[in-house]
Design a protein around this nucleic acid. Structure first.
Lengths: 137, 137
DNA sequence: CTGTATCCAGGAGGATACTG
DNA sequence: CAGTATCCTCCTGGATACAG
C-alpha cells in the first residue's frame, strides 16, 4: 500500500549502528511520504476538516490526502471524528503522541535552519566540480 | 536522479505551518532514502572504506551505496578521501554537520522508542477494525 | 578495490470521475 | 462534504556486468 519498511531487524547480534538506525528509521517511517509532516503541522493547532486540509496544503491530491490521513490515524498520530450531519462533517486532530513528535522534530528543524546555507554552498561547489570534470571528457 | 524535493516554496505569505513543514522537509530530504541513516551512523565512529560499508550494511547494493554516498557528499555530510594506491583505497568520514545531525536525530529516536508499543497497538486495533468492517460487506 | 552503466520491478504519488 | 476507485507516470532501488 504505502511505506513498506516494516522489516524490523531483530538480530541482537547486529552492530550497534544497525540497531540505532533501525529505531530512527521507525520514526522516520511514520512521517515519511510527501505530505505527512504538512498534515501533522496543520493539525497541531486544533481540529481541521478534510476540505480545509485540502485547501491548506497546496498541491496535494484528494487521494494522497486520504491515504496519508489513514496512515497517520493507523499509527495513532491523528484522530478522526465523524459528525452524522448533512452534509457530512469530519474533523481531524493530532494526538498527544503527535505533539511529542512535533517537539522532537524541533531539533531537526533547528539543524536544517542552522546549516541551510552551508548545505546550499556544498551543493553548489559539488555541482560545479562535477560540471568541470565532465568538461574534460 | 534521486531525492527530487528541491521545490522550496518561497511564498512568504504562506501560512506558518507551511513554512515550518518546508524547513523540516529540507532536513528530512538529506536523510531520506533507504540507506542514508545507516551509512551516516557507520561513519560516525571514524573513517570507513567503501567495501567495509558494503559489508557493514546488509542488503545494500553497490549502486545504492555509491548513489547515497554521493548525495551525502554533495550535501556536505560526508567527506571522501582517495588514496592513489594500488589497489585503490577510498575513505569516507562524517563531517561536523553530520555529527550535529546525529545529535538532532536523538530526539526522534527517543520518541520512537517511547511510543513504539503504543504505535504497534494502535496499528493492531486499527487493522482489526478494518478487518471487522470488511466482513460486513 | 571502487566504482559506473544498464536493465528492470514495484510502489509512491498525480488526475479525476464517481458516490453516499 | 468527504471520500473511494481507477488509471497512469515516474522514480527509487535491486541485480549485475563491466572498467579503471
Amino acid at each position: 500500500m504505502f511505506l513498506g519498511n516494516n522489516d524490523v531487524i531483530e538480530d541482537d547480534g547486529a552492530p550497534p549502528a544497525e540497531r540505532e538506525a533501525c529505531t530512527v528509521l521507525e520514526a522516520l517511517n511514520r512521517i515519511s511520504g510527501k505530505w505527512a509532516i504538512g498534515i501533522l503541522l496543520n493539525l497541531s493547532h486544533g481540529p481541521v476538516r478534510f476540505t480545509e486540509l485540502e485547501r491548506a496544503i497546496p498541491g496535494i491530491s484528494r487521494r494522497m490526502l486520504t491515504l496519508t490521513l489513514r496512515n497517520l490515524e493507523r499509527d495513532g498520530l491523528i484522530e478522526r471524528t465523524v459528525y452524522a450531519t448533512v452534509p457530512p462533517k469530519v474533523e481531524y486532530r493530532g494526538t498527544e503522541m503527535a505533539d511529542e513528535l512535533y517537539t522532537s522534530l524541533k531539533g531537526l528543524t533547528a539543524w536544517a535552519e542552522r546549516h541551510r546555507d552551508a548545505i546550499a554552498r556544498s551543493r553548489d561547489s559539488y555541482d560545479r566540480e562535477q560540471a568541470a570534470g565532465a568538461g574534460d571528457l
